[in-house]
Design a protein around this nucleic acid. Structure first.
Length: 263
DNA sequence: ATGCCTGTTCTACC
DNA sequence: CGGTAGAACAGGCA
């Protein structure tokens, strides 16, 4: 379910594992381990202690005391379970089934003073996520929660559709399909506008809309709590002015937007 | 039943 | 080079 907001909640959950030592790695699905073989991956992280849980955009990782970063990607359906506790997103889909077959990757932590060390599990029905040793952070743009106006302006130098640029993780990290539609709805900007066609006022408006959208939807509980969300269907109407929403494909993703106030 | 979906990566192609 | 399109992953839901 993850866009930036969900991945941030996973990162916070993963912080519970800071200070623990990785005793065992379970990789029942070799395909889920990216880049190198499961054996090599396991050898690189077993015995290491988790020093921090970090995030940029939709990528989360555990910083290990042996210098490696253990990257966690969630795709569209991945979720994190630590010590048997999932992060908040039951709210989203209601009581979701939890099949152990979907546990694609597990860290078992070393017992400490006789107490169970706990575990970290990445459960992903559709296998669209994965784990990666030392993911390349250089491929990600600035995180959307901290991107500055000038960084954003620099990223808009493309004839590509505005929405496609905002969703390009190499330019801005963290915005997915739902968040981007809500950002543009708030900013009053058409998703189809060439990114380099924004005037000065619009370049000021856009980062504000990103900030407002992330704060507001974060408070409400996630990417699925956008103002546009209930209207994401044929016959959907703009919550601001009641106009019929347009449904078009932009940047390869279904896009809902208001042709009346988004220009 | 058919089609759609909060994501990414790869290939083919223009 | 910049950009587009489709496929792949696989389950739930309308």
């Amino acid at each position: 379910m993850p866009e930036l907001l969900e991945v941030e909640s996973y990162r916070r959950l993963a912080e519970r594992t800071v200070g623990r030592s990785i005793a065992e790695v379970l990789t029942p699905d070799a395909w889920f381990v990216k880049g190198i073989g499961p054996e090599e991956f396991t050898a690189a992280v077993t015995g290491a202690v988790v020093e921090a849980a970090e995030r940029r955009g939709k990528l989360a990782w555990l910083q290990l005391d042996n210098g490696h970063r253990l990257g966690l990607r969630f795709g569209m359906t991945g979720r994190l379970v630590v010590d048997g506790t999932a992060a908040i997103d039951e709210l989203v889909y209601g009581a979701r089934r939890q099949d152990p077959v979907w546990d694609r990757f597990t860290l078992v932590f070393a017992a400490h003073r006789g107490a169970d060390g706990g575990s970290l599990v990445l459960s992903d029905p559709r296998r669209l996520g994965g784990v990666e040793l030392d993911p390349d952070l250089g491929r990600l743009g600035p995180d959307a929660t901290v991107i500055t106006r000038s960084e954003l302006a620099a990223v808009l130098c493309s004839r590509l559709a505005l929405k496609a640029v905002l969703m390009d993780q190499g330019r801005v990290a963290g915005l997915g399909n739902l968040l981007t539609d809500d950002v543009l709805w708030r900013a009053g900007l058409s998703p189809q506008r060439p990114a380099n066609s924004l005037d000065q006022a619009e370049v000021v408006r856009l980062p504000r809309a990103i900030g407002t959208t992330l704060r507001t939807l974060g408070r409400r509980g996630g990417s699925h709590t956008g103002d546009l969300q209930p209207e994401r269907h044929r016959d959907g109407r703009c919550p601001r002015d009641g106009a019929a929403l347009d449904r078009t494909e932009v940047g390869g993703r279904t896009t809902y937007w208001c042709p009346v106030h988004q220009h």
